[in-house]
Amino acid sequence: MDLALIFMVLMGVSVLAYVVLDGYDLGVGMLMPAASATEQSVMVSSIGPFWDANETWLVLGVGILLVAFPKAHGVVLGALYLPVVAMLVGLMFRGVAFEFRMKALGWHRELWNWLFWAGSFLASFSQGLMLGRYITGFEPGFGYLLFAMVVGASVCGGYVLLGATWLVLKTEGTLQAKALAWSRWGLLWVALGVGLVSLATPLVSETVRAKWFDFPRTLALMALPAACLWAGAVVWRSTGRIARGVRGQDGLPFAAAVAIFAISFLGLAYSLFPYVVIDRLTIWEAAAHPSSLKVVLAGALVVLPFIVAYTAISYRVFRGKARAGLYD
């Protein structure tokens, strides 16, 4: 039994779950300034019951990194120390703003509204920046920093896409109409970001280049970008149909947006595997002592099905369109 591999998969699943789940609520947070006060209340109501559990996937992801790959944890979080601090500050302000923005009065409320937006943006951008630094193995230099900032902007775009398509699913009327337009803007942004990153990554990393440009494997690998393009097309077309009044498919744009993330994530995972720190540490070199891995795995196998089950229950309880005033 290859414990390192199993934990790599577990960590990947946690991180992907985090990115998709917290991604949509961070995206909704970034879209706040574009909406009216009433719409903002609906938007916050649509994510209020979920954001807390969504962020728990981040704790699980970083927890697995810490527990299963302690050597990589030190290298990765040491190199990313300041962006991590920025992300945490953003997540903190945003998390408490859920409570404060409706309970504070006067200019305090305005301040927390602003912090809700700014915190969402800071957290999203920092995560993208961290991803950009991570892909390039934390190489120093201006070019690499620029690359990381482009990735940061792309992740913001991606989260906006997730947030906007989530709102298509969870709202109706004029707010939904706005969300449809936001979805398309988000999609364009994502297309640009994914395109840039896909082109740049093989250029900045020899390891990644070797993995993708190796005929005839390259031909099979082209299924990934093709699927990604197709998912993008689904977002574009379904948002158009919903805008024209076609009913019963409000969830389709969100599902397709999740597919874009999942496919991009797979591509990234393929690029990096078997490294946990590119060109430096493989998952086997970084893995923790098997005794601790076994005991965590046993717990995870027992508990994860329950987590999935009651998460599903929670989404079922709060199914349907969101209403304003959840935080009254």
């Binding site: 209020g48 019951p49 979920f50 807390d52 559990a53 962020e55 728990t56 704790v59 699980l60 927890g63 697995i64 810490l66 527990v67 299963a68 302690p70 923790a288 601790s292 005991v295 965590v296 717990g299 995870a300 508990v303 994860l304 987590i307 009651y310 998460t311 229950i313 929670s314 309880v317 709060f318």
Partner: peptide, 23 residues
Amino acid sequence: GPLLGYEVLTAFFLEATFLGVML
């Protein structure tokens, strides 16, 4: 590591998820 891991797995998801239903 495992003690922290068990805290996340058994406690954090439980309280965070049902908090939504409770509130």
